[in-house]
Structure formats: structure tokens, C-alpha cells
């Protein structure tokens, strides 16, 4: 399904309002995706200038969050949407919250990148950041994709990916602890890497949340806290 699955209301302006808010959400998603990519790159390349740009740009994400929520409040007040229109607006409101948090996590990673480059590069942990970073970036991009295309199969895949990221995060943490025990002088710097890994793991959680909002929006099934197996059953039922 494309963006025009919201057309066809008797009120053309209602269509326009829904399309506009969807457009804004897509814009916000694009910026957030870029921020995450930039934050990872800034960490890996010790690029302070890039990290500072990420920190600065977080404000524009916050502004978009407020603007989209306001649009949604107006739609609720004006149109009293029902059924899938209602689910669409609710999902948008929840998704903006997740996107804004992802923006915050990118901001945290960029801050770590700045402090790391001030203290000299961390001796370890870049492999883990690169690996989990790639995984999480792909999840985020798929989560945004399934929102735009209303693709529940892809949404289910994103949720399943989150499990894999959690496992990778666990083993990365164990590796970091080993480094700290081996070389206590590196603790501060390895901690910075750990905070960044933590941020990436959280981004994966938010991507999964977005995927769950998509399943609710498309099917009307609330799959939060269900577990992957039951979630897959719900998706397959339709």
C-alpha cells in the first residue's frame, strides 16, 4: 500500500491532513536515521565535527515531535477519526515518541564520541560498535519502511531482529568487562564505548516498538508484550 491509502474520505481536507502528518513523520524518520548513522560514524572515525553536528541537529527532531503531536491533536479534535484512521493517528503519536527517543540516543552517542576523542581513542570496542551499529541501523530503516508501506511481515521481521541485537549486546558487554579487567587504565574509555553500545541497544528496542505500532495500525491487533511467537501468529492470522 502506498501513501494514498488514506485517500477516499468524503472530506478531501481530511485526506490532506492525514497525508500531511504522514509526510512529516517520514521526514522526521529520515532525519533520525541520518542522525544514528552520523553518530556511529563519528564514534568510529573519532570525527568531532560530525559529532557536534549530530548534537546540534537533535533540536530539530524535538521540534518535529512537537509539531506532529500538535497536528495529531488537531485531527482528533476536528475529525474524531474512527477505525483505521483512529489507529493511524494513535500510531503516529506513539511513533514520534519512539523516534524522538532514538534521536536522544544518537545524541548520547555523539556526546560519547566527543569525550572519547578528547581522551584519545579507546583501545577496544570498535568492532562491536560497528557490528551492532550496522544491525540496528538496518532495523531502524526497515521499521520506517514498514510504517510507510504498512508492511506487517516486515514489521514482524524487525521485532525478531531486536532479539538478535539483544544477544549481541550481551556478548559485547562481556567482552568490554574483560577489557576493563585486563587493563584498568582503559576503564573510562571502555565505559564510553559501553554507553554507546547501550544507546544502540535502546535504538533497537525503539525500532521494535515502531514495528509493533505498524502491526496495530494495519491489523488492529495490539502485539505489545506478547512475545515473538504469539506476535507471529497474530500476523499470520490475517
Amino acid at each position: 500500500m502506498s501513501i494514498d491509502n488514506f485517500t477516499g474520505h468524503i472530506s478531501q481536507r481530511f485526506d490532506d491532513e492525514l497525508d500531511a502528518v504522514k509526510g512529516r513523520l517520514t521526514e522526521m524518520g529520515g532525519i533520525v536515521e541520518q542522525q544514528v548513522g552520523d553518530a556511529i560514524a563519528a564514534l568510529l572515525n573519532a570525527d568531532v565535527a560530525l559529532a557536534e553536528r549530530v548534537v546540534k541537529k537533535d533540536k530539530s527532531i524535538n521540534k518535529l515531535e512537537v509539531a506532529i503531536d500538535e497536528d495529531c491533536a488537531l485531527i482528533l479534535a476536528r475529525r474524531q477519526p474512527a477505525a483505521r484512521d483512529l489507529r493511524f493517528v494513535l500510531s503516529i503519536i506513539k511513533t514520534t515518541t519512539d523516534l524522538e527517543r532514538i534521536g536522544d540516543e544518537a545524541d548520547k552517542m555523539a556526546t560519547q564520541a566527543i569525550s572519547l576523542s578528547e581522551e584519545g581513542k579507546a583501545p577496544h570496542g570498535y568492532v562491536e560498535i560497528r557490528h551492532i551499529g550496522q544491525h540496528v541501523s538496518r532495523m531502524l530503516s526497515e521499521a520506517l519502511d514498514c510504517f510507510v508501506r504498512q508492511d506487517v511481515e516486515l514489521a514482524l521481521k524487525v521485532a525478531q531482529e531486536d532479539k538478535a541485537v539483544d544477544v549481541e549486546y550481551g556478548s559485547a558487554l562481556r567482552a568490554m568487562m574483560t577489557y576493563m579487567m585486563e587493563d584498568p587504565r582503559s576503564i573510562t574509555r571502555v565505559m564510553s564505548i559501553m554507553w554507546s553500545l547501550r544507546a544502540l541497544e535502546r535504538i533497537g528496542d525503539h525500532a521494535r516498538n515502531i514495528a509493533e505500532h505498524v502491526i496495530y495500525m494495519v491489523q488492529g491487533d495490539d502485539v505489545r508484550h506478547l512475545g515473538l511467537k504469539k506476535m507471529a501468529e497474530k500476523v499470520k492470522q490475517r
Binding site: G8, H9, I10, R79, A83, R84, R87, G220
Partner: peptide, 19 residues
């Protein structure tokens, strides 16, 4: 019915999509 109707006609009507 008002959050997740099953029939397309019901959905079209309650969401204001009848032309």
C-alpha cells in the same frame, strides 16, 4: 466496531469514506 471493524463497508462508513 469503532476501532477495528471487520467489513470494508462498515469501515468505509464510520471513517467517512463513502462517495
Amino acid at each position: 466496531i469503532f476501532t477495528n471493524p471487520n467489513h470494508k463497508l462498515t469501515e468505509d462508513y464510520i471513517t467517512g469514506r463513502f462517495g
